[in-house]
Design a protein around this nucleic acid. Sequence first.
DNA 1: CGGCGGATTGAAGGGAATCAATGCTTGTGG
DNA 2: CCACAAGCATTGATTCCCTTCAATCCGCCG
Lengths: 262, 262
Amino acid sequence: MTQKLSLPGSEILERPRFAAGATEDLLLGARRLRQAFAQSQTRFAGRDVPLIRAGESDPTVILIRSGFAFRSCLLADGRRAILDILVAGDVCGIDHVVLVRPIEDITAAGRIGYQALSATAMRELMADPAIALHALALLAEARWRGDRLAASIGRLDAHARICVLLLDLHDRLRRRGLIAQPIYSLPLTQEQLADHLGLTLVHVNRTLRRLREERIVLLDRQVVIIQDLERLRAAAQGLPQPAELPEAALAAERARSADGRN
Amino acid sequence: MTQKLSLPGSEILERPRFAAGATEDLLLGARRLRQAFAQSQTRFAGRDVPLIRAGESDPTVILIRSGFAFRSCLLADGRRAILDILVAGDVCGIDHVVLVRPIEDITAAGRIGYQALSATAMRELMADPAIALHALALLAEARWRGDRLAASIGRLDAHARICVLLLDLHDRLRRRGLIAQPIYSLPLTQEQLADHLGLTLVHVNRTLRRLREERIVLLDRQVVIIQDLERLRAAAQGLPQPAELPEAALAAERARSADGRN
DNA sequence: CGGCGGATTGAAGGGAATCAATGCTTGTGG
DNA sequence: CCACAAGCATTGATTCCCTTCAATCCGCCG
């Protein structure tokens, strides 16, 4: 059924770029949205502080300035599924523009700085086509990450899943210019990693040990040290290429950093 | 860490509704988008016909009029992950407005009728704030389904996963008025179900047998017969409530069906 | 009839979960 | 300054869900 597919994996090397007809507006929208966020005060929150709770009224849209956060939902049995990890520069909660109440929780993973915009304000901003397009792009990117996670959990083993996660985070941070070396802090407990990867704490631990023994990555005290990027990439093979903010957004990102970043 | 959470599961009984401030526009946007689609000719495709291929240029946005389709991506080892199942009334490919090239494949699961809009045309439509908002809502809903899938694969066992799938599909079809009884056709092979649920063909088969023996659901020859909706719901417990098109879209949907549906 | 895709079923093995201790840090308070 | 508790990390032993491998069967079509 599935074709022979002898593609050596180097097929879709490009990450999804924005459509030509939209790039201009996207850039513009990105800038304007950042400006809107810049109006609001930067706030801070510590570990495990909920930024948005599922079901609460009057949700906000959030721009993370620094640190990590995650989106999660509670399961009936009390377990938790962490659906997305958010890093500095990410905007989350755009769907609150159209939903009365948020569906999931958004929680600070460690100490973070962020700015918030009320859903109403965001809704008004959406009147600007450029911003509307940018919002769509943000959501599209988030969905892509979600799809990727589903594929990862569904078809890769624990070893590969963790590699994908650590590599993707590395690439995201790298692309945003937030790190210069293959080292970054990741303020998630092993239990939280497990909740994200569809594993158990114990198995995450064992797998991390294996990765350490293989001298591929070292995750100690919430610090990730990638010892062998090549082999990490090899081990993370299997999924389609990581889709991330393409150059348009990247440019915007750079612009943002270049401006005073508060 | 996780609170005691003695919520009996009946907490978030409501599905995500659209925000009050947006409902009007959403309805309007939905109607206008349908109208735009109505301009284009209804096309048909048979089983396994790709509607959109990852990487191809000039992608379209698609409204499914009848039948089932699915979104999938290929993994490096040749396996496939089916990330979403699309039913009549679904719009897919909205993200093509912002992406140059689609990231995933969209394939007809059986014989389907659909209408297509070029990404360029859709991009122009987005100038209408109502349509832009509706597009955002569509994407938000798709993401929610993706998140749900990830949680399902990550935290539920095969039995529950299949129940969730069959129940969710039932509810979606029911809510759109496409079925009146707990019976529907599902033109997916067991291998495709496996690719969707992160299982193997063999195990899907065994689990379906068990469900049959338990007299909960019967899946035979691509026809799903829910024998005991109550117990199916019970078995599908565990995830947060299914998020689907809320009444706004529902109304639009009804309006659509009420008009000639081509 | 033969071939083929899909469904079904058995047997065996493995990856991950579960159960259960034991370290290790860190922060708190005496 | 040390004791102590709490949360997190680590590790072993055991269990089991799911995969893998391998046939067989069935319905369909040329």
